Amino acid sequence: MSDDVPDEAAQLAKALREVFAGTKISVRRYATRTHRNAGAVSRYLNGTRVPPWEFITELFTEVSRETGNTLKPEVVEHLKAAHRKALKSSNRRLHEVQILQDRLEDADLQAQQAGIREKVLLEGLQTREHRISQLESRHVELTSRWERDARERDSLKAELQLASTSQTEELEQLKIEVNQLRQELEEARELSEQAERKCQRLEQQLSEAEERAQAGQEAREASSLEAAQQEAESARNVADKLRRQLHDLLAQQESARASVEETLQRKQEAREEKRAEIAQKFIGRPPRGERRLAHPSHDQERRGINP
Score class of each variant (00 low, 15 high):
residue 5 V to A: 07
residue 6 P to N: 01
residue 6 P to D: 02
residue 9 A to W: 01
residue 14 K to T: 06
residue 18 E to Y: 00
residue 19 V to I: 04
residue 23 T to V: 08
residue 24 K to Y: 02
residue 27 V to G: 01
residue 30 Y to I: 09
residue 31 A to S: 13
residue 32 T to R: 14
residue 34 T to F: 12
residue 35 H to I: 09
residue 37 N to P: 09
residue 43 R to L: 13
residue 44 Y to D: 10
residue 44 Y to G: 08
residue 45 L to F: 07
residue 48 T to S: 15
residue 48 T to M: 14
residue 48 T to N: 15
residue 48 T to I: 12
residue 51 P to E: 06
residue 53 W to E: 02
residue 55 F to T: 12
residue 56 I to M: 12
residue 57 T to E: 00
residue 62 E to W: 07
residue 66 E to L: 11
residue 68 G to R: 07
residue 69 N to M: 14
residue 70 T to F: 05
residue 73 P to L: 13
residue 73 P to A: 11
residue 73 P to F: 10
residue 74 E to S: 14
residue 75 V to A: 02
residue 79 L to R: 04
residue 80 K to W: 01
residue 81 A to S: 13
residue 82 A to E: 12
residue 83 H to D: 06
residue 83 H to V: 02
residue 84 R to Y: 11
residue 88 K to S: 00
residue 89 S to H: 00
residue 92 R to H: 09
residue 94 L to G: 08
residue 95 H to K: 07
residue 95 H to P: 05
residue 98 Q to F: 10
residue 103 R to W: 00
residue 104 L to K: 09
residue 104 L to M: 11
residue 108 D to S: 02
residue 109 L to C: 05
residue 111 A to Q: 05
residue 113 Q to G: 05
residue 115 G to K: 15
residue 120 V to P: 04
residue 121 L to E: 13
residue 123 E to Y: 00
residue 123 E to N: 00
residue 125 L to G: 04
residue 128 R to T: 09
residue 130 H to D: 01
residue 130 H to F: 07
residue 132 I to W: 06
residue 133 S to M: 07
residue 134 Q to M: 08
residue 134 Q to S: 04
residue 135 L to H: 06
residue 141 E to M: 07
residue 146 W to S: 12
residue 146 W to F: 10
residue 147 E to W: 04
residue 147 E to Q: 11
residue 149 D to N: 05
residue 153 R to H: 15
residue 157 K to M: 04
residue 162 L to T: 08
residue 162 L to W: 08
residue 163 A to K: 08
residue 164 S to Y: 11
residue 164 S to D: 09
residue 169 E to M: 00
residue 169 E to W: 03
residue 169 E to S: 06
residue 173 Q to T: 12
residue 177 E to H: 06
residue 179 N to C: 04
residue 180 Q to F: 10
residue 180 Q to I: 15
residue 182 R to Y: 04
residue 188 A to E: 03
residue 189 R to Q: 06
residue 191 L to E: 08
residue 192 S to H: 13
residue 195 A to T: 03
residue 197 R to A: 10
residue 198 K to L: 01
residue 199 C to M: 00
residue 201 R to C: 05
residue 202 L to M: 03
residue 207 S to W: 01
residue 208 E to P: 12
residue 210 E to D: 09
residue 212 R to N: 03
residue 213 A to P: 12
residue 218 E to A: 15
residue 218 E to W: 13
residue 225 L to T: 11
residue 231 E to M: 09
residue 232 A to W: 09
residue 233 E to N: 14
residue 233 E to G: 06
residue 234 S to H: 15
residue 234 S to A: 12
residue 235 A to T: 02
residue 236 R to D: 12
residue 237 N to L: 14
residue 238 V to E: 01
residue 238 V to W: 00
residue 240 D to F: 13
residue 241 K to H: 13
residue 242 L to W: 02
residue 244 R to Y: 02
residue 244 R to I: 02
residue 244 R to M: 03
residue 249 L to D: 02
residue 250 L to Q: 01
residue 251 A to M: 07
residue 251 A to K: 06
residue 256 A to G: 14
residue 260 V to Y: 00
residue 261 E to I: 09
residue 262 E to M: 12
residue 262 E to K: 15
residue 267 K to H: 15
residue 268 Q to A: 07
residue 270 A to C: 05
residue 270 A to M: 05
residue 271 R to Q: 10
residue 278 I to T: 05
residue 285 R to G: 06
residue 289 G to M: 02
residue 289 G to V: 03
residue 290 E to T: 10
residue 293 L to Q: 04
residue 293 L to G: 00
residue 295 H to C: 13
residue 298 H to T: 05
residue 299 D to Y: 08
residue 299 D to F: 04
residue 300 Q to E: 14
